[in-house]
Design a protein around this nucleic acid. Structure first.
Lengths: 226, 226
DNA sequence: CCCATCCTTGTACACTTGAACAAGGAACAC
DNA sequence: GTGTTCCTTGTTCAAGTGTACAAGGATGGG
C-alpha cells in the first residue's frame, strides 16, 4: 500500500462515508464504521470533521459543487435550450448513478440536516437548482414549451423524475444513465399519449388539468422547502 | 383522556413511529422516542413488536395495504384507462402527502430493510406496483399511448415523478395533492414541448431518444430492485 | 368471585454511539 | 539537527441504543 497524503485520506473518508450513508442512512452509519471502511482510525475522522454533521455537510458540499460544475460544463456544447436540458439530464443522472454516493445523500438526507447546516449549504444548492430553472426558463422564452406552464412545477417534475431513478437503477443493467436520461427527456418533452388521443388545441387540456400557472403572476424560481 | 383499547395503542404507536421514522430516518428514531410520542412505555412497544424491524415491517405492511385499497377503489369510477391513471395518481399523492407518514417510510426506507423483511413485504408491494402496471398496460392496449413505449420505464417514470413530490410538498401550500396530480398527469400525457417545436411524426422522436422498447421483446412488468 | 390471559410497567443489561483527549510520530522549515 | 506544526493513534467516557424480563395490574369468562 502506497503512502497516502492528507488529501487522499480526506477523499477516502468522504467516499466511504457516502457509501455507508447511502446504504444505511446518515443516522445508521457510525463514525467508526466509516473510519474502518476508509482504513483509518476513528480519531482521524474526528480530527478532520469535529462532528458527524460536519462530515455530512462537507460531503454534501463536495457533491453539489461537483455536480454543478459537471452540468454547467456539459450544457455548454449546445445553445438550444431544449437540447441543453437533455444534456443536463444526462450528466445529472450519470453523476447521481455512477459517481460516489454523495449526490444521493445530498438529495435524500438534505431535509434531515440541522437548520444551521442546511443554511450552510443552501446557497450552493440553490445555485444548482438555478441552473435547471435557467434552462427551463430559456426553453419557455424561446417558445419551445407550451405557453403558460408553471415552470417551477415543471422543474420539480423533471428533477423528481430524474432523481427517482436512483431508487431502482442498478449498475450494469440494460440501460446506461444516458439512455434513461434520453428516454425521460423524450417522455417529458413529448408526452406519452398517442397522437390520436391527444385533445386539440392542447392548451385547453393543460388548463383543464391544472398544469398552467395560476392567474396571479408568480416569481420565476418557486421556492423549495427551506 | 379516555381509556384506550389495544387497537388504539397499536395505531398510536404506528402513527408515532411513522412520523419519527420520516423525520429522522428509521435508524435515527429510537424505540424510546416512539414510545414517548405514542404515550406508552418502551416495554409496551417491545411487547407488540419484538424488534424494531418488526415494527418497521408492520408499518410498511399497513401502508401498502392501505394505499392499495384506496387506489383500487378510486379507479373503479372510470373505465377509461387514461382517466383511471389520473385518478390513481390523485389518490396516490393524497395518501402519500396527507396520510400518516407510513407510505413515505415505505417508499424511501424499503431498500434498507433486511432481506428477510423485504421478502415479507415483497408480495404486497409487488401487488401495488401491479395496479400501476395494469393501468399503464391497459392504456397502451387501448391505443392511447405512443406505440412501442417501454411500459416498465413509463411506470418508473410516472411513479418516480409522483413520489418525488413528497420531498417538496408542504401541507397548506398553494396546491392540493389533487391539483399537483392533475398537473403531473397533464405533463406526462401531453409533454411540455409546444406544438410548433414538436417533431413529426413523433414516433421517430421517441425512437431517437431511446424511450421505446428495445427490439428484443420484454416481459411486461419489469422488475424493480428486489 | 376466581382465575387465566393479556398487556403494561419499570428496571436492567450488554452494547454501540459520538466525541474527547493525552501521547506519539511524521514531515518540514530553518 | 532542531523545533514546530500537523496529523494519527488508541483509549476513554457518558449518553443512548435495542432488547429482555420479573412483577404487577386490568379485563373478561365461568
Amino acid at each position: 500500500m502506497t503512502k497516502r497524503t492528507a488529501g487522499d485520506i480526506d477523499t477516502h473518508v468522504l467516499t466511504a462515508a457516502a457509501k455507508l450513508f447511502r446504504e444505511h442512512g446518515v443516522a445508521g452509519a457510525s463514525v467508526r464504521a466509516i473510519a474502518d471502511a476508509a482504513g483509518v482510525f476513528p480519531g482521524s475522522v474526528t480530527y478532520r470533521y469535529p462532528t458527524k454533521e460536519a462530515l455530512v455537510v462537507a460531503l454534501m458540499q463536495r457533491a453539489v459543487e461537483d455536480i454543478s460544475v459537471r452540468v454547467f460544463d456539459a450544457i455548454e456544447v449546445s445553445s438550444d435550450p431544449v437540447e441543453r436540458l437533455r444534456l443536463a439530464m444526462r450528466v445529472h443522472l450519470r453523476t447521481l448513478l455512477d459517481g460516489d454516493d454523495a449526490v444521493f445523500v445530498l438529495l435524500f438526507d438534505w431535509q434531515r440536516l440541522s437548520p444551521e447546516s442546511r443554511a450552510a449549504l443552501a446557497q450552493e444548492r440553490r445555485r444548482y437548482e438555478s441552473i435547471w430553472d435557467g434552462l427551463i426558463y430559456a426553453a419557455a422564452a424561446s417558445g419551445q414549451l407550451v405557453e403558460g406552464l408553471d415552470l417551477s412545477l415543471v422543474r420539480k417534475f423533471v428533477f423528481g423524475a430524474a432523481n427517482s431513478v436512483a431508487f431502482w437503477y442498478q449498475a450494469g443493467g440494460p440501460r446506461t444513465p444516458e439512455e434513461i436520461a434520453d428516454a425521460f427527456s423524450a417522455l417529458i418533452g413529448l408526452g406519452a399519449l398517442s397522437e390520436r388521443s391527444r385533445p386539440r388545441p392542447s392548451v385547453e387540456a393543460y388548463e383543464q388539468l391544472g398544469a398552467l400557472r395560476p392567474h396571479t403572476t408568480r416569481n420565476q424560481g418557486g421556492n423549495d422547502v427551506e
